[in-house]
Design a protein around this nucleic acid. Sequence first.
DNA 1: TTTCTTTGTTGATCTAGGTCATCGTTTTGC
DNA 2: GCAAAACGATGACCTAGATCAACAAAGAAA
Lengths: 195, 195
Amino acid sequence: MYDRLFHYIEQYSNSTLSESEKEVLTNTWKPQTLKKKAFFLREGELCNFAGFIVKGAMRQYTVDDNGIEHVSELAIENWWIVDRKSYFERTPATTYIEAWENTEMLVLKRSNLDIILEIPSIKEMFWQMNQRNQIASQQRLNDIVSLPASKRYENLQKKYPAIIERFPQHIIASYLGITKETLSRVRNRIAGKNP
Amino acid sequence: MYDRLFHYIEQYSNSTLSESEKEVLTNTWKPQTLKKKAFFLREGELCNFAGFIVKGAMRQYTVDDNGIEHVSELAIENWWIVDRKSYFERTPATTYIEAWENTEMLVLKRSNLDIILEIPSIKEMFWQMNQRNQIASQQRLNDIVSLPASKRYENLQKKYPAIIERFPQHIIASYLGITKETLSRVRNRIAGKNP
DNA sequence: TTTCTTTGTTGATCTAGGTCATCGTTTTGC
DNA sequence: GCAAAACGATGACCTAGATCAACAAAGAAA
């Protein structure tokens, strides 16, 4: 169960974890399973845990003043899921995080974060993770203002085909910032062009 | 000139810089001035410098396939300006960065980054900066899919009134993901509501 | 099986915001 | 000082995508 996490850390820190370090990790990261549709976090709560998905799929979303849900993040195996703002700044969460499938995670309690960051490869891994994440959301922001719906969908298909297979269309649509009807029509148009 | 930088670092690292650390900083961060309209970075180049703005204003933007500019970042005194992806991953820049006013900066060469990160308060400052930045772009992404143009403008007014005063409307419009005409009308409507 | 929920499609219509064009006003460069 | 550029406002029109509605199909639940 922990192997995926170790491997992830070693990959992104570009270094090897010692046995003692691995022990610290197993003492601070705890397994948690969530049934499909169960909430990992609700708006208004404190996000006390950061989760690494070992198996399953989750989605993060906000609810606006009109009660409309807007998907902000979709995550599957080997991804992190956390309300960063709430977790790092210890403020009430503005997002919901929900298991979309039955999901197994390893979760890091916020109060253990500082201990964990003493390990250089962990610090490096978090550093890289933040960097990558930031670049990705910058890219997403840019796409949303400069590309039409169809191009955004095609980009997602290219970049994260696995995501498209794991979530239904109305969730993907919301992630792309369009309605399910528009995504349905966009897919038809694209299919027409590539016979 | 360096005082602003020192102060910024001490503020966000929540610690005090020693004299020797300050010396390292003055040896690695170099002053650079840019005339209005001069480029700090062009698409395709390597972003070899991260800039801290001491005085002035800059904008970062991309140009899409149709030649339309999309403002991705606006920065004034005490802000950083850098193409993160290019700087950290050493890949060709996808953005332009241009001085909007005559600007004084302190710039950190990419090859000095690793030296600088040895100083704990610097590492901490970068950590915080990345964290904040990430949260901000997440917020911006959320706003753009969930709020109408008028609300986005009002939010910007509340959050960064200084930005609105320093840049012309067509730049602000692009930053908000709308056209200058729409911003003009939106402002009229808002002015009508608050007589 | 039967019922209920979730998912996806398609049509009709609407609208926020984009596009195009024009025209003052202000700034800037020389 | 003057021409040229940059800036901002406003009108007329257009369109990508939203909204509303109806319906089919496929799971999931019972």
